[in-house]
Design a protein around this nucleic acid. Sequence first.
DNA 1: CTGAAAGCGCTTACAG
DNA 2: CTGAAAGCGCTTACAG
Lengths: 351, 351
Amino acid sequence: MPNTVSTTPKTLKSHRATGRVTLSDVAQAAGVSPSTVSRALRGERAVDPALIERVQTVSSRLGYVPDPAARALASQRSNHVAILIPLLSNTLFVDLLDSAQKTLRAAGFQTLMGVTHYDASEEEQLLREQLLHRPAGLLVTGLDHNPVTRKLMDSTQVPCVHLMDLPLAASDGAPYCVGFRQTEAGAAMTRHLLSSGRQRIAFAAAQLDPRVMQRLYGWRSALQEAGLYEPTLEFLNPAPSSLALGGLMFEQIMHQRPAVDAVFFCNDDLAQGALMAALRLGIAVPSQVAIAGFNDLTGSDQMLPSLTTVRTPRARIGKAAAQMLLTLMRGESPDPAQVDLGFEIVQRQST
Amino acid sequence: MPNTVSTTPKTLKSHRATGRVTLSDVAQAAGVSPSTVSRALRGERAVDPALIERVQTVSSRLGYVPDPAARALASQRSNHVAILIPLLSNTLFVDLLDSAQKTLRAAGFQTLMGVTHYDASEEEQLLREQLLHRPAGLLVTGLDHNPVTRKLMDSTQVPCVHLMDLPLAASDGAPYCVGFRQTEAGAAMTRHLLSSGRQRIAFAAAQLDPRVMQRLYGWRSALQEAGLYEPTLEFLNPAPSSLALGGLMFEQIMHQRPAVDAVFFCNDDLAQGALMAALRLGIAVPSQVAIAGFNDLTGSDQMLPSLTTVRTPRARIGKAAAQMLLTLMRGESPDPAQVDLGFEIVQRQST
DNA sequence: CTGAAAGCGCTTACAG
DNA sequence: CTGAAAGCGCTTACAG
């Protein structure tokens, strides 16, 4: 064990230059080999219970705490979990991050976050960097990635769970994911508006990410079912979502299509902006036009009138996805590989 | 170099079990020693320029990328930067995180985030865990920490920059920090309200974290200067800040002190909620009562009436702090150790 | 300016 | 169930 000619006498104090208490220190103090300490501390089977206890006692007496870098180097696996989200400026993703991170930390994992800005090549680059750290697991937003990214995710042995989206069909090599059906949610809100008597329901969207597009498809199919679909009822703007943009879009819609009797916004921030614009313009909501949003973000219940919206279970998604990942990282198979957490129509005053 | 009896003939391909291209592979292919490759790649002085180029060429041809864990273990320093923020549910801190993270990533650092929930012992625990990863740097919110945490931050060699706050006086061992003077900002908004003729200015606050308290002191001193201070004008609620709470507090204030002619909220979400409540209650803003907020959060410019507030430079704080940390991590001394980024009164319709 | 060697602190086949 | 030994992939005094 002693590496060179030791000039210091045998003591229980660390003999390393760094002064850190190491696994060898514990081994020496407990009178067992480093291998045994390693196994005992990690709860590996095949260790005498008596030894486990002795090692644990000595370990905590000495204040030993394992070095993550050494562990990662030796085992080729770190205690990092990488999470990829599109934006930090959308509370939706922050909620996801917050709940996933909380769950992961409680299980001893560090969260490495990456912000892709909805940019496929940035996502790819980020993933490459994160994979270098040999993360124990991966949490990624959505199911849409460029081919290289997908290959990276597949070829690596790192367990991966997708957030928010679900595959259209419970297909063949379906990936692990937890989310809800965006398309259904879009259709459900549209039918809700239809059932309250609205006839000319516009769909207004910004950002135009894959999930927004799915909501659009849901709205379309519900209107087509009702025989009320018209392409000119679609108002799509690729700009980032914001209250200000919602206000602008609303104004533009009411100007171009004054007969519209409902506007379904793809996100609550747009809808909140529309509500404020309506107040400013003296447009009566919901009597003249109904306004609906999506996600039930902060403040939607405080608007005047309060906003009818689709409540999405993002905190639960983050938590459930983290739990599924923990299962995978233990080497087990999560029972349903796809978890649908659903959504809920929240009927308030704006419709 | 060869570890055991090599059964494979000499090739340029990796001989490691992991299949990864290592530094030794590059060394072998470039015909130099591993030490030289290490030095050349990290741009350490004292390497022949010709060799540097050769090594770089070979390295990129082989697709070599250094292993962070090995590097961390050998050098006792990772490429992680730990950042400690109170909450993820306040956009203020998300903005901080976003901009700091962007700056750090561009310089090759990974961000390790920790959410303290304004809990001193959680902060301490989080810091301990992060320190295990031997981060290259530390970004922490505020200057208020419990003694143990402060000792941890001091005793470690890890460079540390504080966000948001500045020390009262440019004192002795003043820590590195970038922020603005909360107290002055609180006083400035109060004077702004006074100068527009308001006489009975209430201060309404939630969360009551250290920075909120500083704003309170600023408001107090400005009112005292004007001889208009009354303790009963203070409305303090330790609950988390939200639009709904702002609405409630506003209603309560107007009920208890109908003669109040202005309410200065410690955060925009409260003020936005108050604005919505005023609309609901039919209280005229600003004619009957002025409403002011703090931080200029998303949506404040879209309210009806739009919200007068204090714009705080959080994105610039995150970026500047990250840059200061980069300087420290290079072993240099940032010129001003304290950077005051100031604030700005944004006069809108609500006052 | 360059290299050989030791070391960072663990994990993990491999024997026993 | 336990231990000796090799190895993970780098960095860094120490010589030269």
